[in-house]
């Protein structure tokens, strides 16, 4: 399904306000979801109307890239770019599951061609280049195609002097493309540095989970780094660290809140306030300091 159709379907849904008086008995089956935070059941439509944030405990559930774009972009403004870029299987990888099969499965499951969607959009009236990663697509890991789409997003922002807003969620480098994936870290970082030299603002929004080679490259090279509450953001995953140091990790380690405390991100922002916050930032940060 093309993303435009997906948006259409999503926009045609009607949301109803959160109503705690509603009883489970009034509702058809299969429209309740369980919050991963407080384990309470929530009426599906309440949950969606609340942008997949639990009305009870505030837990932010993971959302996919099309939903993310809907949530950030002004209605009807998103125009996708580079939609035809997709992964090749340059190393003909067959260890574990064949990469070609994984790609087919991911495409069928998500309706996307890669682990990120990019495009032109407006946020609070500001023209921007917007990109959002989709963890469902092989963990939104960065191989050549993801690296290329991100690099082109930086280049489009530079060419059109539009601020860039990237929403990250990624398992890191895509090992099925071997050293080519590692080099995408350098490629995207070069593109980010070049945008910074030109004085075009770049805002990154780190969401759950962002890790490995994505964290250690373009994701943290932004002028302003925001993160969603409770998002896990790391270079090395907790299990590898625990195996290395042979001790368990402190509570809250590698969360967005932990990183604010240690000075690595600017703010933890509730999903329901993200669009306004980004829009306000863009009021301040004009391309080229104009």
């Amino acid at each position: 399904m093309p993303i435009s159709d997906w948006f259409q379907a999503r926009e045609e849904r009607t949301y109803i306000p959160v109503d705690s008086q509603r009883s489970a008995a009034d509702l058809p089956d299969g429209v309740w979801v369980k919050c991963e935070g407080c384990k309470k059941t929530i009426y599906q439509r309440d949950f969606e109307a609340n942008l997949d944030v639990c009305p009870g405990c505030g837990k932010h559930a993971d959302i996919d890239a099309p939903t993310r774009v809907l949530l950030l972009a002004d209605a009807g403004t998103f125009a996708e770019t580079e939609a035809d870029i997709t992964s090749a299987d340059p190393l003909r990888w067959t260890s574990g599951k064949p990469y070609a099969t994984q790609l087919e499965t991911a495409k069928a499951k998500t309706g996307l061609t890669e682990g990120i969607i990019t495009g032109r959009a407006a946020i609070g009236g500001h023209p921007v280049v917007l990109g959002a990663m989709d963890f469902r697509f092989i963990g939104a890991s960065m191989g050549s195609a993801v690296g290329e789409k991100i690099t082109r997003a930086f280049e489009l922002a530079l060419a059109e002097r539009r601020p860039l807003v990237l929403v990250t969620a990624s398992g890191g480098a895509r090992m099925q493309e071997g050293v080519l994936s590692l080099m995408q870290m350098a490629k995207t970082s070069a593109a980010a540095a070049r945008l910074a030299e030109a004085g075009i603002p770049y805002v990154s929004i780190l969401t759950n989970p962002t890790s490995g080679g994505v964290t250690a490259s373009f994701a943290v090279l932004a002028d302003v780094i925001l993160a969603e509450p409770g998002a896990l953001i790391m270079f090395t995953g907790p299990r590898v660290i625990e195996q290395t140091i042979r001790q368990s990790l402190p509570k809250g380690f590698q969360t967005a809140e932990f990183l604010v405390e240690h000075g690595f991100i600017d703010a933890v922002v509730d999903r329901r306030e993200l669009r306004d916050r980004v829009s306000l930032l863009l009021d301040y940060l004009n391309p080229g300091g104009e």
């Binding site: 350098a186 250690a216 490259s217 373009f218 270079f235 090395t236 660290i241 590698q254 240690h262 690595f264």
Partner: peptide
């Protein structure tokens, strides 16, 4: 733990930039 607390991802990314 210290590597993560002191922003190893940031340090690597800044080297790359």
């Amino acid at each position: 733990i210290g590597s993560e607390e002191r922003g190893v991802a940031w340090a690597i990314a800044e080297c790359l930039a």
